[in-house]
Amino acid sequence: MKYEITNGTINQVIVDDFDPEKVTDAELKKLKELIYKNKIAVLKNQFLTPEQYINLSKRLGTPEEYYQPMYHHPEVKEIFVSSNIPKNGEQFGVPKTGKFWHADYAFMPKPFAFTLIYPQVIPQQNRGTFFIDMGKAYNNLSDELKAKAESLICRHSVRRYFKIRPTDIYKPISEVLKEIEQETPEVQHSCVFTHPITQEKTLYISEGFSEGLIDKNGKSLDQGELDELLEATGQKDKAYKNPAIHLQTFEKGDILIWDNRSLVHCALHTSAPEPAESFRITLHDEFDFYEGVNDFNQQIAAVA
């Protein structure tokens, strides 16, 4: 496996000769190490069937089906489909996903280590994904903000960007909200954690899923405290011009893999309607998302 590293706002590992049928376990271990260190890898010239795609992902980690079936690929349920292209006259996947800053599954007790995106149909206009490295974001905070963030807990919920399902049509909004709270109740994560592999401190907040901050005693802070941190990371910049923001574009045959512990991302959608489709797989690795994540919410509940 040959690769090169391109340096930028976020480093990328570019792999041109990747063969999923011949790659060794040692090479895949090396690839994961490179992703932990550099945050993003791009496998070039990949033309895989859904079965080949999921088989590759299973060698990198443990896939998990998205909790809502309407996103599932009909042949491989672990593949999350973002698409505005009907199949056989019926909706295939869900259109216009992810147009807000987030880390995948931050609203769940156990988020993912890696995200893989495999574009199938790429619009001719600008299309891609914005990223912010939240390890760098933490390092760029003032000493005062670092100390404050390390002492806090962040509340996360999917409620603000929940996609209305076909089964929700004609339901009272109160009933839909109740189901959201029952299916994905709010979770709490440390506002800053140490990456289990790189030992880098990472700020774990997002514009999309972070609902507010609380202190170690369970006291809620003013919304301005969270807004101050989001502003410092660049997530409040609606023009996407903040120097911390990296735009990742795609070519046909690319598979993008990134470190979901370290990065928040936001989809760039074209303003005019164009066919677009991508397949996503999310993976757990062999490590806890961060130390103590498995019992973090139980500990907070005990304090509260």
Rank of each mutant, 00 (worst) to 15 (best):
K219D: 10
C154F: 05
F162E: 04
I180Q: 12
Q188M: 14
T249P: 03
R159Q: 10
E183W: 01
L229I: 12
S157Y: 07
L177P: 01
T184H: 03
V176E: 11
L256R: 02
H265M: 03
L226D: 03
Y204K: 05
E175H: 11
T282C: 14
P243I: 06
S206W: 04
F209S: 07
E274G: 04
H195I: 00
K216I: 12
P275A: 13
A267P: 05
Q182D: 09
Q199G: 03
E228V: 05
K171P: 07
K171L: 13
D168K: 10
S271F: 08
V158A: 09
I245T: 08
L203K: 01
P196S: 08
P172M: 10
R155D: 10
H156V: 00
V192D: 01
Y204R: 06
D254T: 01
I169E: 06
F279A: 00
V176Y: 13
T202G: 02
I173H: 15
H246Q: 05
R280K: 15
V158E: 08
K201V: 05
R280M: 07
A232V: 10
I205V: 15
R159W: 09
L213P: 04
D254R: 02
T167S: 15
K236A: 14
L226M: 10
E211P: 00
I197T: 09
L263P: 00
F209E: 09
S210Y: 06
A244L: 02
N242E: 13
D227S: 11
T167A: 14
I255C: 02
F193R: 03
I214T: 12
E277I: 00
A239V: 04
Q188L: 14
L263G: 00
C266R: 08
T194L: 12
A276E: 08
L177K: 15
E186H: 01
K219E: 09
G212Q: 13
E274W: 13
F250D: 01
F193Q: 04
I205Y: 06
H195G: 08
E179H: 07
L226S: 06
C191S: 11
I245V: 11
P172S: 15
Y240F: 09
V192K: 08
Q223I: 08
L247G: 01
P172A: 15
G224E: 11
R159L: 13
C191Y: 14
E200I: 03
T249Q: 12
T194F: 12
I255M: 04
L230Q: 10
D227I: 09
P166L: 05
W258K: 01
L213H: 06
P166R: 06
E200V: 05
E183G: 01
I164P: 02
I153V: 15
D259V: 10
P185D: 03
L213S: 07
D237S: 13
D237C: 12
A276M: 10
Q223E: 11
E277T: 02
P243Q: 08
V192Q: 09
S278K: 00
K252L: 11
H246T: 04
S174L: 13
V264I: 07
R280G: 12
I281E: 10
K241E: 09
H195Q: 07
L263V: 00
I153K: 01
P196Q: 11
Q235M: 15
L263Y: 03
P273G: 04
S220I: 05
S210R: 07
C191T: 15
Y204D: 05
A239E: 14
H265C: 03
L256M: 08
E274N: 08
F193W: 14
T194I: 11
T233W: 10
